[in-house]
Simulated assay, not measured.
Amino acid sequence: MARRRKGDPVDGWLVVDKPAGMGSTDIVGKVRWALNAQKAGHAGTLDPDATGVLAIALGEATKTVPFVTDADKCYRFRVVWGARTTTDDASGTVTEMSDARPDADAVEAALDRFRGDIMQVPPQVSAVKVEGERAYDLAREGVEMELAARPLHVSRLEVVASDADGVELEMVCGKGGYVRAIARDLGDALGCLGHVGWLRRVWSGPFRAEEGVSVETIEAEARTPALLARLLPLETGLAELPELPVSEAAAARLRNGNPGEVLSGAEHGATCWAARDGRAVAIGTYRAGALHPFKVFRS
C-alpha cells in the first residue's frame, strides 16, 4: 500500500527575497511548512550570506526546476581588495593580505578576461562533488583540494561603483557560475588579492528580486490564503522553452506518456512544453509534428 504524503498538493512558484544569514535549504523548509506543501525545492543555491532571488518550486513545479537552473542569472556584488580568505568571501578566515590597490583603468582592463567563455575553478567551499563528497564538507575537515576548472559563459560584467578599497560589479552569467571565484581570480589578476564583501542575486531566469517575498511575510501569512495567492503558476518556470498548443485528444495522449500532435511547430529536436488552455501538459522533445514527452504534469 502506497504511503500517503504529508501535506497538501500545492503547485507553483514562490519567489523569496532571501536575507543574509539563512541557508537556502532553511528557506525551502520554511516555505514548505508555511504552505503545508507536500513537496518543495529551489532553483539554484545562494550562499548563507548572500541575498536576493531564491525561487522555490512546489509540487508539480519541481519538474520545471532544471530549466530555471539552466537559465541566465544576474548578480550584483562587491569585491574587497587586499585579502584572500578561506571561503573567498567575508565569512572566511584571512589567509593572505596585500597593501596593493588597483586603479580604475587597471580594473576595467582586467575584467575583459572574465567576459565571454571562460574557465573557472570553483571555491574550496562549494557544492562541487569530490569522490562522492561535497567540497564544502571536505573543506570544513581541513582537506585541501585541487578542483578542476569548469566552463562558464559570462555575457556581461560591468563596474557599478568603485573606491580605493573595492569595486561593485554586476554580472550576468550562465549555469554554474561562482561569484566568489570571480572575486578571487580578479584580485589575483590585479595582484592585490580580493574576496566578496557582499552578494545579491538580482534575477534568475524569469524571477526578479523585486517580486520576492520576505521571510517575515512568509511567517506572518503562514497557513493562510494570502500566502497561497502569492504563488506564481508552474508554467513560469518554462519561460525559456517554446510553448506548443495541443488539442484535448493530444493532451490526453501526452498525459499517458505517449507522443501527441501539436498545433504549431518548433525546431527539430528542441525541448518544448505542450499547453492546453495555457496549462502545462508535458515537457518533451519536438519531432515531426509531435511532442515526445519525458515529463508529464498532473492534470
Rank of each mutant, 00 (worst) to 15 (best):
V130K: 00
L46V: 10
K295N: 14
L228V: 02
A229D: 14
L231N: 02
S162C: 12
P48D: 14
P225K: 02
R140Y: 13
K129A: 14
V79N: 07
L14P: 03
L234Q: 12
H153L: 10
D185I: 04
L186V: 04
I56K: 01
V10C: 03
A148E: 12
R32M: 09
M1N: 12
A251S: 14
E108V: 08
S247M: 06
D72Y: 04
P102R: 01
V16W: 02
D188R: 00
A83R: 04
M119C: 11
V10K: 04
R101T: 08
E235T: 03
D99E: 15
E144F: 05
R32V: 07
L228R: 10
D8R: 12
G284I: 00
L54G: 03
L193Q: 11
L254T: 06
P225W: 02
P259R: 09
G187F: 02
G142V: 08
R76E: 15
Y286G: 08
L138S: 14
P233W: 03
E158M: 08
A252W: 09
R276L: 15
D47Y: 03
R76K: 05
T224G: 10
P48F: 06
R32Y: 05
A282P: 07
R3F: 05
T271E: 15
H42C: 07
P66F: 00
D72T: 01
K295E: 15
S214T: 14
F294L: 12
L291Q: 11
R279E: 15
D188T: 05
L152I: 10
C173W: 00
P9L: 10
V213L: 09
A55M: 04
T62D: 12
E131I: 01
I118L: 14
G197C: 11
R101Q: 06
T95V: 15
R253G: 13
V15M: 00
C173M: 03
V53F: 09
A104C: 06
R255P: 11
F207L: 05
E144Q: 15
A229G: 13
S162I: 11
E158C: 07
A57L: 06
G21K: 00
L241N: 06
E131S: 15
T217E: 14
V10A: 02
P206A: 14
T45F: 08
V246L: 09
A20M: 10
L244S: 01
F297W: 00
A288Y: 08
S98H: 01
E131A: 15
R32H: 05
N36A: 15
W273H: 15
S91P: 07
L244E: 03
P259T: 06
V246H: 02
L234Y: 04
I283C: 09
T62Q: 12
E248F: 12
A161N: 12
P123N: 06
R3H: 11
A34Q: 02
A127G: 11
D49T: 14
E146H: 08
V246N: 05
E60P: 09
G29Y: 00
D17M: 12
R113G: 13
S162R: 13
V262T: 09
A83H: 08
G142I: 02
L157G: 04
V160M: 13
A229R: 07
W203F: 04
Q120A: 05
R156T: 11
D8Y: 08
D17L: 04
E133R: 15
T236Y: 12
R3Y: 08
E261R: 13
A275K: 02
M171P: 07
